[in-house]
Every structure is written in C-alpha cells, then in structure tokens.
Design a binder for these strands. Sequence first.
DNA 1: CGGGATGTTGAGGCAAGTCAATCTAAGTGG
DNA 2: CCACTTAGATTGACTTGCCTCAACATCCCG
Lengths: 248, 248
Amino acid sequence: MFCGKENTGTVCGQCVIGEIALFSYLDNGSLRKLRSLAAGAYFPSGRTIVEQGQEQEHVFVITRGLVKLYRLTADGQRQITGFLGAGDLLGSIKRNAQAYCTAEAMTDVEACSIQRANFTNFLQDQPRVCFNLLVAATDEIEARYDHSILLARKHANGRLAAFLLLMALRWRSLEDAPVVIHVPMPRSDIADHLGLTTETVSRVLSQFKNRGIIEFQGPKTIVLRSIAALYDLAGLEELPRPRMAMGL
Amino acid sequence: MFCGKENTGTVCGQCVIGEIALFSYLDNGSLRKLRSLAAGAYFPSGRTIVEQGQEQEHVFVITRGLVKLYRLTADGQRQITGFLGAGDLLGSIKRNAQAYCTAEAMTDVEACSIQRANFTNFLQDQPRVCFNLLVAATDEIEARYDHSILLARKHANGRLAAFLLLMALRWRSLEDAPVVIHVPMPRSDIADHLGLTTETVSRVLSQFKNRGIIEFQGPKTIVLRSIAALYDLAGLEELPRPRMAMGL
DNA sequence: CGGGATGTTGAGGCAAGTCAATCTAAGTGG
DNA sequence: CCACTTAGATTGACTTGCCTCAACATCCCG
C-alpha cells in the first residue's frame, strides 16, 4: 500500500500518494523524490497520532481509516474541530511546529508519513505543489467559515441535518435517496463537533426518525430517507464539493 | 502612499507594500516587479469592494481603513465572517474566482490592488512568497478554528470578552490596563459576528459596565478597566499573536 | 432643533442545557 | 452459548440563557 522507505522494493503500482490531487500532476522524477521521502505509518484505533501543543515531527497523508481532531480549551472544554479520512492531510505547514489540536485514530489508520523538514523543503522545490497546497488551504478556510455559520446561525436540527449530509457526501457521492451512511463516531463526538450535547443530538435524531426523514440500522448506521428534507432543515442549496481536508 | 501604475513617478519611499510581512524579505528586483503590478485603490465608506459570488478581478492589500466581510446564507441570514484592516489581504487564491463573501468598506478604505492573474503568476515565480502565503493561510485556518470554538462553547459574555480582547490586540499591542479601544462597527455587526442578537450584545456590555470591567466613552469607544476579568470571562490564557488576516 | 438611525432596557417565551433514570448494544468470562 | 457487565444511547422532567417583541433612550447629522 505504501511506497516509503520501509517498503522499498515492494510493488509500488498501488501506492496512493501519487493519486492525491495535491501531487497528481507531478512528473515522474518529482514523484519518485516524494516517494523516497515518504514512509508508511500505522496507528491502531484509539491511538493519539499528534497531541495538541507538541512538536509535530511529521506530516501525514491519511490513506485508510478515520481520524478525529479535537482541541482542549484553557477552561477544560473539548471541541471536535473535524474528522479526516483517506486522502486528507494531517499536519500542515505552520509558523511554529506545535500542533493546534490533537489527532486521534477512530479506527485503525494507515498513513503516509513525511518528515516536516523534508516536506517543507519539497514544497520550496516544487512551486506548483506549494501553490496547490495554498489553494487547498483556502478551501479549508471556506469550510471553516461554513462551519462557523452553522454554529452561529443554525438550530440543533439544522446542524444535524447539515452534518448528516456532509457525512453522506464526504467520502462518496450522494446519489438518489435512500442513502445509507455509516456514522462511526459516538454521539458525544457529534455533539462536540456541532456545539450541542449528546442528549440534544439523540433527541433530534429521534425526531428525524419519527418524521420519517431518517431510519436507523443500529445507532451508527443511518438511512437517509429524504435528502430534500435534510437540505431544507439545513437551510442549504448546495453542499461544498468534495475536497482534501487539512488538519493542523 | 501607493506605488502602483496610477502613481508612477511619485515618491515611493513610503509605499507600504514592501512592509507587509508577506513581502518584506523580497529582494529589490522582485519588489520592484511587485510594485509594477500594484495600483492604488480607494473605496469610500459603505462601498462594496467585492460581492459574494461575483468573479474577483483583483486581490487587495488593505493599507488604511476597515473592511467588513459577510456572507448571506441560502435562507437569507447574514453572518459577518470577519473584519480586515491595514496590512490584511482581501481576495486570496482560490480554485474558482467567485468571492466567498461580500467585502464592504466600513470606513474610507485605501488599498493596493493587484490583478488576480498577475498575483497568481507572481506567486508561481516567487516560491518563498507562495510558501509564506501558505503559512499565513494556515494561521487563518487556526483563527477560524478559534472562532468556531468561541461560537460552539462560549456563552454570550465569553464571546464578547474575547471579542473586546481581540479588538484591543488586533491592530495594536495590549499594554497594561486601562486600554482604550475603538469599536467602529455597530452593535448589529458585533452580534452577527458572534452569533448573537444586538439586544444581547447591548445587555452583556451593560453588565460588564456595571461590574466595572469596562467603561464607555460614547457607544463606540470602550475603556477596558480589567483585562484579567475579560481573559477570565473569555476562558482564555493567551490570545493569538497579531497576524495578517485573509478575506476570501 | 427635529428625526431617523443606533443603542438600551424590560417582559415573556422557547430551544437547548442539566440532571437523572432507563434502555440497548456489544463485549467478556464462566 | 448465555448470563453478566459496561459503555453508549435514549427518554423524561426541570432549568436557564438567549431570542423575540416592544418600548424607550441616545446619538448624529442635516
């Protein structure tokens, strides 16, 4: 799966790093160089990948699994800032190397790891990669704005409707209903992400169920019966297109 | 003040574009090239600089005045996403040129304007500028995260305490109390920015006044009597260092 | 010195938080 | 394989902080 140092000599035909949009147009020489910098990494479910405030030694491209990002505030509250999946970038370029938030593997996670310094140098050598990463960062800023608007302006049911739609869209395309989505995180994580409490999340989801908008197949598998109703509740016309997410 | 095409021949000793952190280390040749791309721009108070959804022709470096950024949601609500001042960048590099939000001059505004295409080309030619802009974008992402946490986790008084501290710190250093800050935007803008209503903003500020934390000199000039109390209310230990803000 | 825009204060309602009790799911060991 | 355990999820009763609606005050500018 990986084509880094630790796997030198293995078949690289299925290495994913070249398929990441960020690197997809690199010529063979540059791609080979990038691969020479990369190493495979594995984190079992529950393992902390980077910890808030610690120096980040590596940048990761997630290739499999799900990562939860959260930040602890000075007064001891936890805010889940986002979730990363395959294709997303964890640990970007920053002024200081201290991680802004903690990243924790929610499932078993595989990733491509690159030394920070090497990645920084690679960016300086490859202006197009740097430029594309800048575009990705701008996308991330827009996504953060959208989330702020969600928190500032939507009620609990709107936030959850938007969340379900994003979960449905994030790692697959949204075909016609019914769409079955898997929600791997516990209710408390959803609540933390949306600025609600677990009880409210539970109540709103039950309300959606009673209104026939969604249907449960166990607490973590949800069938979206009416996409239109969810759009309406979320007050959305269109969802952001799929993109590479960046965790700091 | 400006050194762009429209001002060719004027004294350039006081041109600010070279003083922006983003460009500060450019050699003379590159800086001259950048200046040749820049033109002065002026927007009277109340003028819309860029409008949400419209193609952005230019990128601006604000050199004087205050700009308010807001986005209208599909269901007709308004969210003020931020405020820009001198040294900040308006209209970054994006996948599509459509503006994410509207930018409106709150005061008379002077800016350095650069054609988007020219700026993009300049970035490709100047990897270090591109890299530094990427770092600035990452700072912006962190600032957006902080604002999300504010909206998700803080009550009205915490949000306003944090807002007052940010206003105090943003364009000047925060010396020992009492600090006199100028809050040029109306209460409705503050409310929109913090996900509150004007009434709540007013009530909380009155509460601060009654508790002796702040003092009014007219509704737009506020004396911060107790910085410590504000930090405590905001649940903060430290504020983000001053940075170049980016509006999309 | 008016009069509209902006800001403040008050009364009442409601959405979501809090506290607490149950219910369910998914392991765990006998 | 099933009883037991435990974390997670749901539901209910009550409380509260903010919003809504409304009246009043103040600022600002012609």
